[in-house]
Simulated assay, not measured.
Amino acid sequence: MSTRPLPPALTRRGLLGAAAVGAAGALAACGEDETPLPANEIDAEQVPDYYPAEYADILAASKEEGGELEVYSNTDQENWAPILRDFQKKYPWVEKINASNLDSDEVFQRILSEQATNGSPADLVVSNAAQAWAEYAGGEGRLLAHDSPELAHLPEFALLLPNVYAMSVDPQTIAYNTSLMPEAPTGIGHLAELVAADTGLFEDKLTSRDVGGAFGFTVSRTFTDHVPDAWEHLETLLPLARPETSSGTQNEKILAGEYLAGFFISAAPANPVVANSGGLFEIVFPQDGTVLLPRGIGIAHGAPHPNTARLFVDFLLSEEGQRAVAEGGLASYRDSVEQVEGLHTYQEVVDAVGEDAIIFAPYELVDEAEVDEFTARWNGLLEGGS
Rank of each mutant, 00 (worst) to 15 (best):
E95I: 15
E95Y: 07
L102P: 01
L124N: 06
E78G: 09
L112C: 05
W133G: 14
V126Y: 10
S113L: 09
N118D: 14
P92R: 00
W93K: 02
L84H: 07
V107C: 10
S113I: 03
Q115G: 13
A99H: 02
S100Y: 01
E70Q: 11
G66R: 09
I111F: 05
A129T: 13
F87E: 03
S120H: 12
Y91E: 02
N74T: 15
E65F: 09
Q109Y: 10
P82T: 05
Q131A: 08
E70S: 03
K89I: 14
D105R: 07
D86S: 08
V94K: 05
S120R: 12
S100D: 06
A81V: 13
A122G: 03
V126R: 04
A122T: 15
W93L: 02
E68I: 15
L102W: 10
S120D: 04
E106H: 11
A116N: 12
A130Y: 02
F87R: 08
S100V: 05
E106I: 13
V94W: 00
V94R: 01
V126L: 12
V107Y: 00
N128P: 01
S73F: 00
L69I: 15
E68L: 11
E78C: 02
I83G: 04
D105H: 08
Y91T: 04
L69Y: 12
W80N: 12
Y72V: 06
P92W: 01
A122D: 08
V125I: 15
S127F: 06
E78T: 14
A130V: 00
K90C: 04
A132V: 05
R85V: 08
Q115N: 14
A99S: 11
S120V: 11
A122F: 13
